[in-house]
C-alpha cells in the first residue's frame, strides 16, 4: 500500500515572485503550478509529453512542466503565461496571436506562446521552417497551425520594431 511521502521544501520563483512550499516528491511541476500556486493558465492535454499545453520557461528554457518534478524546480525561475503581460499590457506575442487569429479554443495557446517566446529570444528572425520546428512539440487541434505561423512571424516583427523596448 502506498504511503504518503514526506513533503520536501522547495523555493520556486514564478513570474518574479518567490514561492516557498512543501511538496510531495512525486508532484509534477505542472501540478505544482496549477494546484499549489493556482496559476491555471498552464494546461494539461496529454500524459506522454506530446502536446506541450504545459510548456513554461524554466531558467530561460522552454520545458514541458508535466515532465519535470516540482522538486527539480527548486531554486529555479519559472515564467508562465500569466507572467507575459506587463502592467496589464499584452506582450507582443500575445498581441500577435490575437491579431492573427492564432487561437480558437485557447487551450494550447499558453504553451504555444511560451515556445514562441523562447524561439524569438534565440532567433529574432526565424523563417517558417524554424517556426515549425520550434513549435513541433505543441499540439493545437483547432487552428491547423496556419494562423499560428502568421502570429509568430507577426510577433517577431513586433519585437524587432524600434517601438518595442524590452
Amino acid at each position: 500500500m502506498p504511503e504518503a511521502a514526506p513533503g520536501v521544501s522547495i523555493q520556486v520563483c514564478v513570474n518574479g515572485k518567490l514561492h516557498p512550499r512543501e511538496v510531495e516528491p512525486r508532484k509534477l511541476l505542472v501540478e505544482f503550478i496549477r494546484e499549489d500556486l493556482e496559476l491555471t493558465g498552464t494546461h494539461i492535454g496529454c500524459d506522454t509529453t506530446y502536446c506541450g499545453a504545459c510548456t513554461v520557461l524554466m531558467n530561460g528554457a522552454a520545458v514541458k512542466s508535466c515532465t519535470v518534478f516540482a522538486v527539480q524546480a527548486d531554486g529555479a525561475e519559472i515564467t508562465t503565461v500569466e507572467g507575459l503581460e506587463k502592467n496589464g499590457d499584452l506582450h507582443p506575442i500575445q498581441k500577435a496571436f490575437g491579431d492573427c487569429y492564432g487561437l480558437q479554443c485557447g487551450y494550447c495557446t499558453p504553451g504555444l506562446m511560451i515556445s514562441a517566446l523562447q524561439l524569438l529570444k534565440d532567433n529574432p528572425t526565424p523563417n517558417q521552417e524554424q517556426i515549425r520546428k520550434a513549435i513541433a512539440g505543441n499540439t493545437c487541434r483547432c487552428t491547423g497551425y496556419q494562423n499560428i505561423f502568421k502570429a509568430i512571424e507577426n510577433a517577431a516583427a513586433k519585437l524587432r520594431s524600434p517601438s518595442h523596448a524590452d
Binding site: V81, G98, L103
Partner: peptide, 13 residues
C-alpha cells in the same frame, strides 16, 4: 481572446 491570451480562460479543471 483577452482572457484566453492572458491565461485567464476558465476551463473545468
Amino acid at each position: 481572446d483577452n482572457r484566453l491570451l492572458r491565461g485567464r480562460g476558465k476551463f473545468i479543471d
